[in-house]
Amino acid sequence: MLQKGCIQVYTGNGKGKTTAAVGQGVRAVGRGLKVYMVQFLKGNDTGELHSLKRLEPDFKVFRFERPRGFFWTLSEDEKIELKKDIDKGFEFCREVLKNRECDVLIIDEMMGVLSNKLLDVQEVVEFLKSKPENIEIILTGRNVPKEIADVADLITEMKDIKHYFNEGVPARKGIEF
């Protein structure tokens, strides 16, 4: 059990935000901590799901959404359905904190949820402020709102210096997903 939990944010336009959060979770499991990861805006199959399945019950991944396209490709009806799924997932996060079900709670793509206005930033700030002292929370995603930055204890920015996508290399199985 952690004595002092902090709020970490992995952000930026570069690759590696989810990977860093997963790596932190794997490190925590290695020291006997229990990790939950809630993934938002990710409904498709990814490599980390298969790897992390091997670490259950110490590292569990939760998704509340059905596979969909990118947010900007969704119809208004699909956006309404997505909002309901996000609300259900965020309510799950609240319950996890309230019941102290894990030592580390990773909320993947929270910044995407906020930038698409699927949750209210003030609601998330209040959630973060309600964090028990001994639970670590890790948030990922681009474009951290100032309100989230203000309550975070650590913010790490992933920044593209050079990226092979710009040379036409597509997303690769096992590397990007």
Rank of each mutant, 00 (worst) to 15 (best):
V22F: 04
Q24T: 09
V26D: 00
V29S: 04
G30L: 07
M37Q: 07
M37I: 06
L41C: 02
N44S: 15
N44L: 14
T46L: 15
T46A: 14
E48D: 13
E48P: 08
E48N: 11
L49M: 14
K53R: 14
R54G: 02
R54Y: 06
L55G: 03
E56G: 04
E56D: 03
P57I: 11
P57G: 13
P57H: 13
D58N: 15
K60E: 11
K60I: 12
V61N: 07
F62Q: 06
R63Q: 12
F64M: 06
E65W: 03
P67S: 14
P67D: 06
G69S: 13
F71H: 09
F71R: 01
W72E: 13
L74Q: 01
E76M: 15
K79I: 04
I80R: 15
D85W: 10
K88E: 12
K88V: 11
K88Y: 03
G89A: 07
G89F: 05
F90D: 00
F90N: 01
E91P: 00
F92H: 10
R94W: 00
L97P: 04
K98H: 11
K98P: 00
E101V: 12
E101C: 11
E101G: 08
D103R: 06
L105N: 08
I106V: 13
I107Y: 06
E109Q: 05
M110E: 06
M110A: 09
M111N: 09
V113W: 00
S115D: 05
N116D: 04
L118G: 01
D120I: 05
Q122F: 07
Q122G: 04
Q122E: 13
E123P: 00
V125S: 11
F127W: 02
F127L: 14
L128P: 04
